[in-house]
């Protein structure tokens, strides 16, 4: 297993390099630039600015300068937030985004898996329809509807919770966590129901049932292991997504996380911030897909031997 993780970490190096290279090419090919402004600016000023940020060099030279800086831990200054380094911008938003992502993930996993498992135990009965219909609302009402709707009901009409913020007023973390959690809970519920149904119809479960094991024992001891496979595959990218923040939720609730930079940096053509957030997200993707694969191996004991032999 250690060897497996080591090899995967080695593979991360070319992955990150390729991501950086393609992103670099993409952003320089996109029209506009960090200094385009609505009002005309004298060309002399633009030239001076480009020179200050090395933007007058050929793209490949810029890339190697950037790469060299990154290897020394320097992700450069943000173009939009003058005077702040990309590291500073990401570091300011990251703890908040992580916290929000964590709450949302817990809500999603608890609601999603329990709904999915409960539903799968008696498919096509009320015990299936009720939790699954609730899960469906998380899909039918996407975050950009769910968020404002919950604010309207719980913050404005009922006046129970604050309308926005993150850690300013007690209780202001509840609505954003729920909004983001519901969206993922819906996915997890459906995937775990499907995974469980698949497993529950397999023969070893029938055997266990015939032996008179209780439902709880069957679920926890035998079925969850295989039934969670689709959820595990889904959770790799989903977790990376949750922990890099949600543009919609952070905007609706005025949360100073880093999720909004993924969209805004692109709009602002803040080259260094785009690269910084992309590298950050790529790292998360690599880590969580690796974790998901480790869990997949753990869920499938027979894979362990083959994964060792094939690597």
């Amino acid at each position: 297993m250690i060897k497996f993780i080591f090899i995967r970490l080695l593979q991360a190096i070319p992955v990150l390099l390729i991501v950086m290279t393609i992103t670099f090419v993409l952003i320089h090919a996109a029209p506009g630039g960090p200094f385009s402004a609505e009002r005309a600016v004298p060309p002399e000023v633009i030239e001076a600015l480009n020179a200050q940020y090395n933007l007058d060099d050929p793209v490949h030279v810029q890339f190697f300068i950037y790469l060299n800086n990154v290897l020394h831990g320097d992700f450069g200054p943000s173009f939009k937030y003058t005077g702040r380094s990309v590291t500073e911008v990401i570091a300011a938003g990251m703890p908040i985004t992580f916290e929000l992502g964590l709450y949302a993930m817990l809500i999603a996993l608890i609601l999603g898996i329990s709904a999915g498992v409960i539903a799968s135990l008696k498919p096509n009965t009320m015990q299936d329809y009720v939790p699954m219909s609730l899960a469906m609302t998380g899909i039918c009402l996407p975050t950009f509807v769910m968020g404002p709707l919950m604010v309207l009901v719980f913050a404005i009409w009922l006046d129970w919770l604050p309308v926005s913020g993150w850690g300013y007023i007690p209780g202001d973390k509840i609505l954003p966590s729920l909004t983001l959690g519901f969206a993922y809970a819906a996915y997890i519920a459906r995937l775990s129901r499907g995974g469980m149904l698949e497993i529950l119809s397999q023969d070893f479960i029938r055997t266990a049932r015939a032996k008179g094991l209780s439902t709880a024992a069957i679920v926890f001891r035998h079925a969850l292991r295989g039934g969670m496979q689709p959820v595990v595959s889904f959770m790799g990218p989903a977790l990376a997504g949750l922990l890099s923040g949600s543009f919609v939720v952070e905007t609706i609730f005025q949360i100073p996380g880093m999720g909004r930079y993924f969209v805004q940096a692109a709009f602002n053509r803040d080259y260094t911030l785009i690269l910084g957030t992309t590298i950050f997200f790529a790292t998360l993707i690599i880590i969580f897909n690796l974790l998901a694969d480790i869990v997949t191996v753990w869920l499938n004991p027979r894979l362990r031997d083959s994964s060792n032999s094939s690597n």
Partner: peptide, 17 residues
């Protein structure tokens, strides 16, 4: 406060923020 979304801003105003 840097509130970009004008609906969010209006709700903040209504809630006395």
């Amino acid at each position: 406060y840097p509130v970009q979304n004008n609906s969010t801003e209006e709700r903040m105003f209504r809630a006395g923020q």
